[in-house]
Structures are given as C-alpha cells and as structure tokens.
Design a protein around this nucleic acid. Structure first.
Length: 181
DNA sequence: TCAGTGATTAGG
DNA sequence: CTAATCACTGAG
C-alpha cells in the first residue's frame, strides 16, 4: 500500500452530517437502525457492521439517563452537540458505546446494543475494540470510526429499555429500545 | 440464577 | 478516605 486510504472512501454510502445527530434522540435512535458502523483497525483495515438494536437516553428528566444526575466528568460529553461518542465502563468489565444526540446542553445519547450477528452492548464494544480512547470521538470527522447511510429506513420494533429498572416509572416502561425484526 | 470486576460518584 | 452502585455477561 503506497497511499493512505482517505476516510471518505466509502462503498457508495454517505457519512451522515452533523444535522443527523443533533435531532432528538427519539428520532436518531431508530434512525440508526440498518446504518453501517464502520471502524478502522490499526492496520488500516475497515470493518463494517450493521446496527440492529439501539436504546434512547433522553435528557435531565429521564431517570435512566446518566445525565439526569447532572454534569460530571463522565457525563460531560452528553452535554455537547450530537455526533460524538459517550463511552463508559460498567461492571468492571464492559465498555458501553453511545452516540451523543441533540443540541448542546440537552444531554441525550443512543446506546448501541446490537450489530448484525452480535447482541449485547458489552459484546459490541469487545467486537469492534471500543475503549476509553473513543470517549468524545466525533463521528462526523473521525478517521477511525464513523457511520455510513445505506439509504435504508427499516421497519422496527420497540420495547422497554434493558437493565434500568432502578429508574422507576414512567422511565423504566418507556418504549425507547429499538430493534429490527 | 448469580458472581465477577473496577470506574465513578456521593458523602464523611 | 470509604462504600454503594452499575445502560452486562457467561457459566451452571
């Protein structure tokens, strides 16, 4: 290989611009289904995965949303404009991959729960190599991770979010989990 | 059904 | 400083 691949070398697919991510999380979360999550590994190899399951975490009011407890070093990025990654570590073992959405100071994020052939947010991050270094990465400009739009808007199913019963009603029952059949 | 595992956070 | 909590997973 004599020349670096420009990050714009897609397979005819477009990288969504900022405006895709700055919409409300309840639009972006289902909107990410069937989109491609592209990741470039250290040897410049690009791997592509189809997003099949997402969850929406929405603002100060949503008691399941980490930002509902206020601005902390961990949640800081959720207060930025959409398009950046919110990555955090849980249960001493797993990295959670989230995409920040909405406008500045309206903390929201989409948790990526599943890719085609890979179910579970912890497994997703392990599969594609997400770690702390991805915190704050900007999907609209990053050279190592980005979204590609295949021009598909699939039918999807909704259901309550997983693992957030502590949030209580009405939040634990909100149908803010989205997945393809 | 349940233990593992450690960053993050609130509180003293 | 201490201790509780946790947007999970794999083994049994």
């Amino acid at each position: 290989m004599t020349e670096k691949h420009p990050i714009e070398t897609f397979f005819g697919n477009a990288r969504p611009a900022r405006g895709f991510f700055t919409r409300d999380v309840l639009d972006v979360a289902p909107g990410l289904l069937e989109k491609v999550l592209a990741v470039k590994s250290e040897n410049d190899q690009v791997s592509r995965f189809i997003i099949t399951e997402t969850e929406a975490y929405r603002g100060y009011d949503d008691k399941a949303c980490h930002a509902s407890k206020g601005r902390t070093p961990r949640t800081e990025i959720m207060f930025h404009q959409g398009g950046k990654l919110y990555v955090y570590f849980v249960y001493g073992m797993y990295w959670m991959l989230n995409i920040v959405t909405g406008m500045e100071n309206d903390p929201q994020a989409v948790l990526i729960r599943g890719l085609r052939g890979c179910s579970g947010p912890g497994r997703v991050s392990k599969l594609i190599g997400i770690d702390r270094s991805y915190y704050g990465e900007d999907l609209t400009t990053s050279g190592r991770i980005w979204i590609e739009d295949q021009g598909v808007a699939p039918d999807y199913i909704t259901g309550p979010r997983i693992g957030i019963d502590y949030a209580g009603e009405p939040w634990k029952s909100k149908p803010w989990r989205f997945y393809t059949p």
